[in-house]
Write a protein that binds this DNA or RNA. Structure first.
Length: 158
DNA sequence: CCCTGATTCGC
DNA sequence: GCGAATCAGG
């Protein structure tokens, strides 16, 4: 690929805005684009796209509301604990990552892994394309990479 | 314990 | 301008 340090290209900024407006958390946006959470948040701040108070308000609503409509299961902690538990209990990797099924953006389907390969906008840019679980954006292997919880110290890179 | 987004500040 | 470190809130 001709470009070494693409940093924030137009494609990435558009993806950023799209996901931001879609209501995704900065953590998910970061994992989807392939940068750190702080990078996403920093860029959003520079673009004056911070939703600041709206986030806390949203959380407060979610926390205070379930008294009546307790249908939704708070799977944030569950997912995190499950991941940790799986890592501790299962020595093997959750799923293999093979690039045999990689596809373009247009070929992406609902049950296809949307993990971006290479740099968006590059000639060889494509997606993983492996089978993803229902409602999931990534296959098993990339899901582990995308949603890797950890301490505040820098761990996730690439 | 862990998460979240926001800001700071060195690069 | 960028993002890791840090801050602030939950």
């Amino acid at each position: 690929m001709p470009v070494l340090s693409p940093t924030w290209t137009n494609e990435r900024i558009e993806l950023l805005k799209q996901h931001f407006e879609a209501g995704l958390s900065c953590r998910e946006i970061a994992a989807d684009i392939g940068v750190s959470r702080n990078a996403v948040i920093g860029k959003l701040s520079r673009l004056n796209l911070t939703r600041s108070r709206a986030v806390e308000d949203r959380r407060l609503e979610r926390s205070l509301a379930p008294a009546r409509a307790q249908r939704a299961v708070p799977r944030l902690q569950y997912e995190m604990l499950a991941t940790i538990y799986a890592e501790t209990d299962t020595p093997a990797v959750a799923g293999p990552i093979d690039d045999a099924n990689r596809c373009t953006l247009l070929e992406l389907a609902e049950n296809r892994c949307r993990w971006p390969i290479s740099t968006p906008g590059a000639e060889d840019f494509c997606f993983c394309g492996n089978s993803a679980a229902d409602g999931q954006s990534y296959c098993a292997g990339h899901n582990r990479l995308a949603y890797r919880p950890n301490s505040r110290t820098r761990v996730m890179r690439g």
